[in-house]
Simulated scan of single mutants.
Amino acid sequence: MTGYVIRGRVHKYGDNINTDIISPAQYMELSYADMAAHAMEGIDPDFSRKVRPGDIVVAGKNFGSGSSRETAPIALKYAGVGAVVAKFFARIFYRNALNIGLPVLELPEVGEINDGDELEIDLARGTIRNLTRNKDYRFTALPDHILELLQAGGLVPLLEQKMQTKY
């Protein structure tokens, strides 16, 4: 896959951002768009007003810990987040994010990225360029089947595409 580039402004958070912070439980029954209006509300009440399409959430260790609710990555995606970059993720959040087509990337050097920096992420090449600081980073390249999943917009759209092709 070529040409899968995400460019956006950084919204930076710390360690142990759990699913209750990302997607507060009292909004789980709302539509995805309405739920997205409350994304990150527990730590950043203005997040949904500040985030622009393609912006990038950067966080420390254990992003997405807590419950296995799928609404956490869905709220971020529908808020317009183009990708999440963290030191490491809670595994269930990581898998849920990929399943709904939200790129999640592990980068040990997240401490070098600041709130408001502009990043350019090339998923196919495994690179992150901090355009604000003129610094480049590498992350473990995503396997082709994960790039295909992200390009399709998630697991359900990918399966729908494959079923249409097959039948």
Score class of each variant (00 low, 15 high):
51 V>E: 09
105 L>D: 13
138 R>S: 14
95 R>L: 06
20 D>H: 01
156 V>A: 12
115 D>V: 01
29 E>V: 01
115 D>F: 03
149 L>F: 10
60 G>M: 10
57 V>Q: 11
115 D>R: 05
94 Y>M: 10
66 G>R: 01
60 G>I: 07
77 K>H: 12
52 R>T: 09
127 T>N: 06
33 A>K: 14
135 K>W: 02
76 L>E: 05
62 N>C: 03
27 Y>L: 00
146 I>M: 08
34 D>R: 12
144 D>Q: 12
157 P>I: 00
80 G>I: 03
102 L>V: 03
38 H>E: 07
97 A>V: 08
31 S>W: 02
33 A>D: 15
144 D>N: 12
51 V>C: 09
64 G>K: 12
81 V>S: 11
25 A>S: 13
155 L>V: 02
42 G>H: 06
57 V>P: 11
153 G>H: 09
159 L>E: 12
31 S>C: 00
27 Y>P: 00
85 V>T: 12
126 G>N: 06
93 F>Q: 06
56 I>S: 14
38 H>G: 07
44 D>M: 06
142 L>M: 14
62 N>A: 04
120 E>V: 02
84 V>D: 09
96 N>C: 08
45 P>F: 02
23 S>V: 01
145 H>E: 15
56 I>R: 15
35 M>A: 04
157 P>H: 04
48 S>G: 13
158 L>M: 14
57 V>H: 08
38 H>T: 00
131 L>M: 11
86 A>K: 14
66 G>K: 03
40 M>H: 06
64 G>D: 08
80 G>H: 13
76 L>W: 08
99 N>S: 07
64 G>H: 04
45 P>M: 02
157 P>L: 01
150 L>S: 09
32 Y>P: 01
48 S>N: 13
129 R>Q: 14
81 V>Y: 14
42 G>S: 08
92 I>C: 09
81 V>T: 07
62 N>Y: 05
67 S>F: 00
141 A>E: 15
20 D>Y: 00
92 I>W: 03
48 S>D: 14
152 A>L: 04
86 A>F: 12
68 S>F: 08
94 Y>S: 04
92 I>T: 09
50 K>G: 06
